[in-house]
């Protein structure tokens, strides 16, 4: 069965699938069910290599927090450390309690770490029933989450033939079994088709809006821009940035100004004298950094220079990410110019 067939079963409005946040015990109200994740000093070493280096950050309820980093940055390792799956330094608490000490982990934290973490011949339903058992989650809830992720029609089949997208959905179903307060998802959009990604985005946003906590890693930056309210960016295991998404974009974006003038030579000299950097000269056009649009306009007007173009260009989130992690690539890709130079 193709993923497309399964998609037909996805609820059209994912927000309908998100249950209201459970009320807290006693009179504490709904806020008692909001969970703050605190990761402090996470450290993991593989031999001589430091995979995660003293990583500290918080994940707040009510928003989707994106966990970004280049390949090999240590995102998955950090998530495993948070859940006590790997040994290492540091401590992660969920409202003050480490994962291993949670009384009913599936009802507190739902995790998706690997898409294909299932036995190929055990049916999807039995896979979920097995993982639901320790938290006494009913078979009715198992069927409910299968319906929710659009796998109800293949619930009785072994996932051997599942596509990557279907496997991701099964993993997401596992994470949702206990209707948890927290979701920790490692690259959940991998293998999903556009409809699936759209559904996931809407679901996670609704989930967060209900007051719950979401930490989701991805290397799909455009997807993160649409999905995450806050970004924790790491490179080579170290924290690079921990900012709201729009602030990250403005902080790390290199604003530049495109200029075109018939007196470009004279204008370039004047701008350089005022400390600007001039790049990419091409005929009458060039790009300026270090001075903003108004300052460049003032310089040109003061010298009586005619301008044909004066436009500010703001880098996209992707460019901001590349800028932020430029020095933190674990396995940098060689460009064609590198290869030519070699």
């Amino acid at each position: 069965m193709s993923t497309d067939n399964v998609l037909e079963a996805l609820p059209s409005d994912p927000s309908q699938a998100v249950k209201p946040l459970r009320r807290g015990r006693g009179d504490a109200g709904a806020s008692a069910d909001k969970c703050l994740i605190k990761a402090v000093g996470l450290t993991k070493r593989f031999g001589k290599k430091l995979a995660v280096d003293d990583l500290t950050f918080e994940v707040h309820p009510g928003q989707v927090t994106g966990f970004l980093g280049p390949n090999g940055a240590g995102k998955s390792t950090a998530m495993r450390l948070m859940l006590g799956l790997d040994g290492g330094g540091g401590r992660t608490t969920f409202d003050g309690v480490p994962y291993r000490e949670l009384r009913d982990p599936a009802r507190e934290v739902g995790a998706l770490l690997e898409a294909k973490a299932f036995h190929p011949t055990r049916s999807a339903r039995n896979h979920l029933r097995m993982l639901a058992a320790p938290s006494r989650i009913s078979d009715r809830r198992v069927d409910e989450v299968l319906e929710l992720v659009g796998l109800a029609s293949v619930a009785g089949k072994g996932p051997k033939s599942f596509s990557l997208g279907m496997s991701q959905r099964l993993g997401l179903a596992v994470a949702l079994l206990g209707d948890p307060r927290v979701l920790i998802l490692d690259e959940p959009a991998n293998g999903l088709d556009p409809q699936g990604i759209n559904w996931l985005r809407s679901f996670l946003q609704s989930f967060a809006e209900s007051g719950r906590t979401v930490l989701v890693s991805s290397h799909q930056l455009a997807e993160m821009a649409q999905m995450a309210d806050h970004l924790v960016v790491i490179g080579r295991g170290r924290l690079i940035s921990d900012l709201p998404t729009d602030e990250f974009e403005s902080r790390w974006s290199l604003k530049s100004v495109s200029v075109q003038s018939p007196q470009s030579e004279q204008l370039r000299r004047l701008l350089i004298d005022r400390g600007a950097t001039v790049q990419s000269p091409h005929g009458d056009a060039f790009v300026v950094t270090g001075l903003d649009q108004a300052q460049i306009g003032d310089v040109a007007a003061g010298a009586g220079i005619v301008l044909h173009e004066l436009a500010t260009r703001v880098a996209s989130l992707e460019e901001a990410f590349l800028e932020a992690t430029a020095d933190a690539q674990e396995h940098p890709i060689r460009t064609t110019s590198d290869l030519s130079a070699a």
Binding site: L83, A106, V109, L113, E114, A117, H119
Partner: peptide, 18 residues
């Protein structure tokens, strides 16, 4: 053996962390 071979040790340990 199956849990390590197929990766099910991860969801099993998140469902039973002790």
């Amino acid at each position: 053996g199956h849990d390590y071979r197929h990766g099910t040790i991860l969801p099993m340990l998140t469902s039973v962390p002790r």
